[in-house]
Write a protein that binds this DNA or RNA. Structure first.
Lengths: 148, 148
DNA sequence: CGGTATCCTATTAGATACTG
DNA sequence: CAGTATCTAATAGGATACCG
């Protein structure tokens, strides 16, 4: 049960025991702070190492499998495949296959995926624009504690 | 070389070979699409499983170590410690220790951390508000392909 | 081209025990 | 309280081979 499974523990087709599901809403501001909330998994798919970059790449428009692979530098076939399946399952990406020869498969964001990608890109843009601050903070931290 | 290391491969105090750093800017819309960009690591810290929840929890205000642990349901001491160190190193979180007895340590967002958390929270809020869509998409996907 | 299946390694996460 | 150290389990990730 590994290889190209949808990234999660199970939940692909199995159900979790009742004890793990109940405590979702509680008095928390956001459900996601409670473990075993489905939103936690979706957020993980969207923000994960490859998920965020895949969504970001697709924000500019539809891309084919190997186009995506070249855009998202460093992703392996396996991880891209897994990532796309997880995002498709969550309804963030739409897969359009044409059974021609050679085959052609297009991936594009759904409306929801587009909204998610937009927020992700805002975050990416913010972080990139402030990397100088981050780098300086790292130097300070390493100077103070890195010496140990 | 594991235990409480700052989540990354090395780079805590070691440098990567030059071959892995150069290709950062290129013609990409965002650096982060190129591997070996420092922004990729920072983004990973902020969006990671525990990083996003930690930043989200701190957005409401300063919290102590064990308060955070209770807020971020399911995080272990070790992972919270690691996560906080990574976020502090990147300049997203400020750590304020009082050497009293018993010790008291407060964690709060830096101005940059606050901006990052804000965008993160927008994402979290979006995903949570649309979980019904996600769940329906999952049912459709599993009905079509889960049968295999 | 657009993937899956398999095998294997590396990284991450958790439990537990211990310290200032 | 606020962690660190250590050991182990689970998961992510990569290389390779193969298929429609």
């Amino acid at each position: 049960m590994d290889s190209t499974a949808p990234t999660d523990g199970q939940q692909a087709s199995a159900e979790k025991p009742a004890t793990e599901r109940a405590d979702c809403v509680e008095e928390l501001a956001f459900d996601v702070f409670a473990k075993a909330c489905p939103s936690r998994a979706t957020l993980a798919h969207a923000t994960g190492r490859w998920g965020s970059l895949t969504l970001g790449a697709l924000y500019d428009g539809t891309l084919r499998f190997n186009e995506l692979r070249r855009r998202v530098d460093g992703v392996s076939e396996k991880m891209l495949s897994q990532t796309l399946h997880a995002l498709e399952r969550d309804g963030l990406v739409h897969r359009e296959a044409q059974l021609t020869n050679p085959p052609r498969v297009d991936y594009e964001l759904t409306p929801l995926g587009s909204e998610v990608a937009e927020r992700l890109l805002q975050l990416i843009h913010l972080v990139e624009g402030r990397m100088d601050e981050v780098l300086r903070a790292r130097e300070r931290y390493d100077a103070a504690r890195g010496g140990r």
